[in-house]
């Protein structure tokens, strides 16, 4: 069995991982240079970086626009999502009837409603914020609803036997007990909101990083396209790190993962 035989042949898994990453970068550099694939498909790593940094002002502005839209969208996705999740998870009638409907809608490819949004509010920032918020709303609401539903009944019984009022149960039991699900809602919902904003920018926009990527693609500026993708990856990496940091702060009562 693989599980039992874990001695490393020659090098440690971590070393192998970094080696592999290095090989990818080298291949990314060499394959287009050696003409193995057309340069319109793949620009060498160095060229992508150079192109990006030469035009850094444009990229920075676009990133700024995206970031602003993302921040606004997150406020709506988190706020409305948390509220809806709280209601859907804790009100018996809603939990039994509306929650299954909401979780089914999660299966719909939401991109299809974007043309509707642009028809209603145009292709300006509003459509990006609304679309991003819509994308993030569902995972946020569903996570919070799941969290509220699965609060251990013993905690509530114990608190009631000690004389807790309804408000004390809500804020001292339900809320802290759902922190892990709320955080996972923040993480997944955050990532989805980012996807929503960038996708909206790619489809129809006048600014933002998604717009810039699309614009460069239509002009076959392959190097710039790759740099744009690179920036989005960095952006989502930072968002993820930020949320993980919050997770650390709020869940010190968890067994530490090893």
């Amino acid at each position: 069995m693989g599980r039992d035989s874990c001695e490393a042949p020659f090098i440690s898994p971590a070393t192998l991982r970094w080696l592999f990453l290095a090989v990818i970068v080298v291949v990314w550099e060499l394959v287009p240079r050696l003409g193995l694939v057309p340069s319109v498909m793949l620009a060498p790593a160095s060229e992508a970086m150079i192109a990006g940094f030469q035009d850094f002002g444009t990229f920075a502005r676009a990133l700024g626009i995206t970031f602003g839209q993302l921040a606004s969208a997150l406020i709506f996705a988190y706020g409305i999502g948390a509220l809806a999740g709280l209601l859907l998870g804790s009100v018996y009638f809603l939990r039994e009837t509306l929650l299954p409907i909401v979780s089914s809608i999660y299966a719909v490819p939401l991109v299809i409603v974007y043309p509707l949004l642009t028809a209603w509010v145009g292709i300006g920032p509003e459509s990006k914020v609304i679309f991003g918020a819509l994308y993030g709303f569902f995972p946020m609401a569903l996570s919070v609803a799941a969290g509220v539903q699965t609060v251990d009944r013993q905690y509530i019984l114990a608190a009631r036997s000690m004389g807790a009022r309804t408000s004390q149960i809500l804020f001292q039991i339900m809320l802290p007990a759902s922190v892990p699900s709320i955080l996972s809602g923040l993480r997944i919902g955050g990532a989805m909101t980012a996807i929503g904003v960038v996708v909206a920018e790619m489809m129809a926009a006048t600014g933002g990083i998604g717009f810039l990527i699309t614009q460069n693609r239509t002009m076959f500026n392959t190097a710039e396209v790759y740099f744009g993708i690179f920036l989005v990856l960095i952006l989502t990496g930072l968002l993820d790190m930020f949320i993980r940091l919050m997770e650390r702060c709020f869940t010190n009562w968890y067994p530490k993962e090893t």
């Binding site: 251990d152 013993q154 905690y155 019984l157 114990a158 039991i173 802290p176 007990a177 922190v179 869940t251 009562w253 968890y254």
Partner: peptide
């Protein structure tokens, strides 16, 4: 109650 009723975040 049984020990599992302790609030884990406290």
């Amino acid at each position: 109650f049984q020990e599992s009723s302790l609030l884990p975040w406290k």
